[in-house]
Amino acid sequence: MWRVIKSVLAAFFGVQKEARRREDFGRGDGRAFIVAGIVMGVVLVVLVALIAHLAAG
């Protein structure tokens, strides 16, 4: 679980170690990454909206 989150965060940032990438792709099942990606995408949007709201208030 923590590994998946870390990999998604690395993808958001745009930088990932080659060794990690090989490990992730070696798992054979991508569903956990897709679900984590969508959930964390939503979290990011909410977070940005919250910061914007705070800045405007």
Partner: peptide, 12 residues
Amino acid sequence: FHEHTTVEVIWT
């Protein structure tokens, strides 16, 4: 050379 995580993190 290929891949240098520290440099990539810095320039991001």
